[in-house]
Lab assay of single mutants.
Amino acid sequence: LPHTAVCLVCGEAGKEDTVEEEEGKFNLMLMECSICNEIIHPGCLKIKESEGVVNDELPNCWECPKC
Rank of each mutant, 00 (worst) to 15 (best):
E22N: 08
V6M: 08
P65S: 07
N37M: 10
S34I: 10
G24N: 14
N60M: 06
G43W: 03
V9R: 05
C61Y: 13
C64I: 01
K25P: 01
E57F: 09
P42L: 05
S34K: 11
E12Q: 13
V54C: 06
S50C: 13
H41F: 00
T4W: 00
E21T: 15
V9E: 10
G11A: 08
V53G: 10
N37T: 04
G24P: 03
M31V: 06
G24S: 14
C61W: 07
E32H: 13
P59M: 07
A5F: 15
T18F: 09
L45A: 06
K15L: 08
C61Q: 09
V54Q: 14
C33Q: 02
I39E: 06
E63W: 04
F26D: 04
A13Q: 15
K48W: 09
V6C: 15
G24D: 09
E32R: 14
P2V: 15
M31I: 06
M29G: 06
C10I: 00
G24M: 15
N37Q: 14
E16A: 04
E63G: 06
V53I: 10
E57Y: 07
H3D: 14
C33R: 02
L58Y: 09
E23P: 05
E20Y: 02
T18Y: 04
C61H: 15
P59A: 09
N55W: 04
E22P: 03
N60Y: 03
G52E: 11
V9W: 01
F26V: 08
C61K: 12
E16Y: 01
A5D: 01
E12R: 11
E51A: 10
A13H: 04
H41N: 03
C33Y: 02
I35A: 03
P59Y: 02
K25D: 01
F26K: 06
G14V: 08
L30A: 04
E21I: 02
K46P: 13
E12T: 12
D17S: 09
G43D: 10
N60Q: 08
K15Q: 04
H3I: 15
G11E: 07
N27K: 13
I47Y: 11
H41D: 09
P59R: 12
K15G: 07
C61D: 03
E57P: 05
P65V: 03
C44W: 01
E16V: 06
I35N: 05
L58A: 03
E16H: 02
M31F: 06
N60R: 10
G43T: 04
L58E: 12
G52P: 14
